[in-house]
Design a protein around this nucleic acid. Structure first.
Lengths: 391, 391
DNA sequence: GCGTTAACTCAACTTTCTTGAGTGTTCAAG
DNA sequence: CTTGAACACTCAAGAAAGTTGAGTTAACGC
C-alpha cells in the first residue's frame, strides 16, 4: 500500500505572478467591473502590484478599460472589465450516437453550437470528428486558434473498469488510457474531462443560477441521472473520476425501494409512458403531453418528485450544500413541476432559516446544457488561481 | 441573492516562502526522511531554494539532520526529518457530559490524554474547563505554550439552527456565534473546529491507515453515526459546516426502510440489547458479550452489517473514494465482525480490479479517536501548503 | 587510479512585491 | 469660495525570494 504524494509545486516569482493574474481576473469577473484599489483590498496585494498586473492583462488583451466611476471623494476609479474576445473556450459533449460542440467567448457567450452524428462510436472516429468540428468552428467564427484557452470534454462515465461497467450508455475503447491525454494530443490544447453532471454544475457556477456559489449540488437529467458536486469551488471527481453516480442508489417511492434512476430519468419517463401506450421520442413530445395535462405523465412526475425527495435528503445531509439545482435534458415545465411537487425533507441540515438560496432550484435545461458546461470547465480554470497544482 | 467571493490572497514573497516551507515539511513527512535534491525535484523548486528553506526550518527547530545516506554515485545525501518536539498540537473533544483533551507532538505522538467531567454543558463552563485543561496539560508535560501550533476542537454538530436541531446530543448556547472564535479568544491559539467524523478521518490520514490518501470516507461510530469525507486532501465541511450527517438517511434492512442511525450506532446497540433484556453501559460490556458469542449481539451485528452495506453503496457511488474506513467508539472486534459480514455492493463504481486499498477498512477505535483527530487537524494544517487561503 | 555522477554551496542576477513620497480629483466643511 | 480631508493612482527605490551557472566534494565503477 504505497501511496504517492499528490504533486504540488512550490512558489516562485513566475508562478506567483500567474496566480495573481488569475486572482485579479476572478475578482473582476465576480463584480463585472472593478478598479485597482478595490482589487488590491480584496486580494491582499498592494495597489502597485495590482496596477502592474492589470497593465500586463491589458497588453495580453484579457481586460478592457471600462470608463471611470466617481464614487464619493477622491480620484474617480478607472474601471476594468473582462474583454469578451480576449479568449475562447471549446466545449465538447460526446454521446454514443453524436458529438455536440460549442465555442464560447471569455465571458461565456456561445458563438456557435452544433451537433454532428457519429457513424460509429469507436475511439478513433470520435477523435477525428471532434478534431474536424474544432477546425470547422474556428473557421466559421474566425477565431484564431491561438486565442483558444482549452477544450472541455464531457463523456459518459463511469471511467475505468468498475462494477457499473456494461451499462448501455458507454463508449467502447475508452476504458484504457487517459481520455484527457488522447484529446490533448488530438486537439493540441489543454483538455479538461468531466462527466455531464459536473460540467453542467460548473456552467451554472460560471454563468447560471449558481454564480458565485462554492458549495452546491446539481442533479442532471441525462440518459440517466447524475449528481454534480461542487465543494469549495471545485468539482468533486472522486479518487477515480467517478463520483456522482447517484442513479444506482436505492430510494423509497410509495414505500417501496427502487433504483433512483428507474424513477427519475429520461429513459424512465419514456419507459413508463411506453408501458401506458404513449410514445415519446424527444423533449417536444414531452412538452406537448405536459401542456395537454396527460394523466400518465402527471403520475410519472408525481413519483419522480417522490424519488427526488429521498435523493434530496441524502444529498443535503451528506453535503450540506448552499442549494441543489435541477437541470439537464428535460423541459423547463417538467422540471418546474417536479420542483413544485418535491417535498423538502424536514429532518435535514439544509432546513435552516438563514438560507440565502432556495433548497431546490431549476438550472439551465435543454440539450446543450452539458456541452456549454464542457466549455465552462475551461473558463473556470482560467479564472481560478492555482499556484500549486501540477498538471 | 448576493454572493460574496470567498476571500483569497495574492502571492507575495512572504506568503510564497510560507507556502514553500509547508511544502517542504509535507514532502519530508511523507517519506520520513529526505534530502534537498529529492525535495527540489518533488516541488519544482531549485535545490538552492530548498536549501535556504531547510536552513530556515532547522533554525526554527522544525527539522533535524538525520545523517547521510549514500545511494549510488555522487555526494551522499544529507538527510532531514521532522523534529518531533519542534511543535505541539492540542486536541479537544467536547461532549455533553465531559471534555476530552490530548496533547500531541509534531509527529503525532500523544504526550498526554485525559478526560474531565463537566458540571454542566453551558458555553462558559466548557470554555473555562478547556482553558484550565490546556494549562494543566502544558504544565504536566513542560511544553512551552510558544510551541503550541494550535488547537483542534471536536464538537457534536449540527452547527447552527437546522432541521436536525433538537437532537439530544447537542450543547446549549453554541448555535449563535462562531465556536472557533470563542475558543480562539479563550485559548489565544489558532483554532480549527470539526465534527467527530471529519476529525477522525484526518487523524487516520495523518498517522493511521489512510496515510497519504487524498480521497476517502470515514464512517464514525459515536453516539450516532457520522460520515467524515476527505476530498482532495481536505475535509469536506459543506456550506454551513454540517456535511456528513449520514445518520438520518434511510436505508433498507431486511427489506424495510429504517434510519441508518437506528440500525448502526452505539445508542442503537444499547437500545436493541436492552429490548432483549441485556444491559450494556460501556465498550467493555460489549467486548465480553462478543467474546461469549451473545446471540442477541450477533443478531444486531448482522443487521448493522446489512445497513452498512446500503450506506456503503451510497458513499461509494456518490464519492468514489479510495477506501471507506470504519472506526470510532466501538470495540475492534465488533468493527472487524461488521466489516467481515458487510456485503460489498456489486453495482458500485468502487468495484474495480485496480484498487490499491480494500473497499472497507478498520480505522483506529476507542474513546480517544476523535480527540486525537482534533489534534490531527492542527498537524494537517501545519503540513498543508496554502498560499491563498485567507483566515 | 581516474573519470563520471550527483548533492550541495556560493555569488551574481532576475522577478515581483512592498513602501513611501508625490499627484490629481472630488467632496464637504467653514 | 477656499481649504483640507479622502481617495485612486503613479513613480522610484528597496526588499524578499527565487533562479542560474560555476565550483566543490564524495562515492561509484571501469
Amino acid at each position: 500500500m504505497v501511496t504517492t504524494l499528490k504533486p504540488q509545486l512550490g512558489a516562485n516569482p513566475e508562478r506567483a505572478r500567474s496566480h495573481n493574474k488569475q486572482l485579479v481576473l476572478r475578482a473582476i469577473r465576480h463584480v463585472g467591473t472593478a478598479g485597482r484599489a478595490e482589487i488590491a483590498r480584496a486580494s491582499g496585494l498592494s495597489t502597485q502590484a495590482v496596477s502592474n498586473i492589470i497593465s500586463d492583462l491589458l497588453r495580453e488583451g484579457l481586460l478592457v478599460e471600462q470608463g471611470v466611476r466617481s464614487a464619493g471623494r477622491g480620484l474617480p476609479v478607472q474601471q476594468y472589465a473582462i474583454k469578451p474576445d480576449g479568449g475562447y473556450a471549446f466545449g465538447v459533449e460526446v454521446r454514443p450516437t453524436a458529438v455536440f460542440i460549442a465555442l464560447v467567448d471569455l465571458v461565456g457567450t456561445p458563438l456557435l453550437t452544433q451537433r454532428t452524428p457519429l457513424v460509429d462510436a469507436q475511439k478513433a472516429t470520435i477523435l477525428d470528428t471532434v478534431s474536424a468540428q474544432l477546425d470547422d468552428a474556428l473557421s466559421k467564427t474566425h477565431v484564431p486558434k491561438a486565442l483558444l484557452m482549452g477544450a472541455g470534454i464531457v463523456m459518459p462515465g463511469p471511467f475505468g473498469d468498475t462494477g457499473l461497467t456494461g451499462a448501455d450508455s458507454e463508449l467502447p475503447g475508452w476504458n484504457t488510457g487517459d481520455p484527457a491525454e488522447s484529446f490533448a494530443n488530438e486537439l493540441d490544447l489543454p483538455v479538461f474531462v468531466e462527466n455531464d453532471a459536473n460540467a453542467a454544475a460548473m456552467a451554472e457556477r460560471m454563468n447560471g443560477v449558481a454564480r458565485g456559489l462554492d458549495d452546491f449540488a446539481y442533479l442532471y437529467f441525462g440518459q440517466g441521472l447524475g449528481l454534480g458536486l461542487v465543494q469549495n469551488g471545485q468539482a468533486v471527481q472522486g479518487a477515480f473520476g467517478n463520483a456522482g453516480e447517484i442513479g444506482h442508489i436505492t430510494v423509497i417511492v410509495q414505500d417501496r425501494p427502487v433504483e433512483l434512476e428507474t424513477a427519475t430519468s429520461r429513459l424512465s419517463v419514456q419507459a413508463y409512458l411506453a408501458g401506458q401506450g404513449v410514445t415519446v421520442t424527444d423533449m417536444d413530445d414531452l412538452n406537448s403531453l405536459y401542456s395537454s395535462a396527460n394523466r400518465h405523465l402527471l403520475v410519472w412526475l408525481d413519483q419522480a418528485a417522490q424519488a427526488l425527495s429521498s435523493a434530496l435528503s441524502i444529498i443535503e445531509n451528506l453535503f450540506d450544500p448552499q442549494t441543489v439545482i435541477l437541470g439537464g435534458a428535460m423541459p423547463d415545465d417538467l422540471l418546474d413541476h417536479i420542483i413544485a411537487h418535491t417535498v423538502l425533507p424536514e429532518r435535514s441540515v439544509a432546513n435552516r432559516p438563514d438560507r440565502t438560496h432556495p433548497r431546490l432550484m431549476r438550472g439551465t435545461s435543454g440539450r446543450m446544457t452539458a456541452t456549454l458546461g464542457a466549455a465552462a470547465l475551461v473558463l473556470h480554470q482560467a479564472f481560478t488561481p492555482t499556484i500549486a497544482e501540477a498538471r
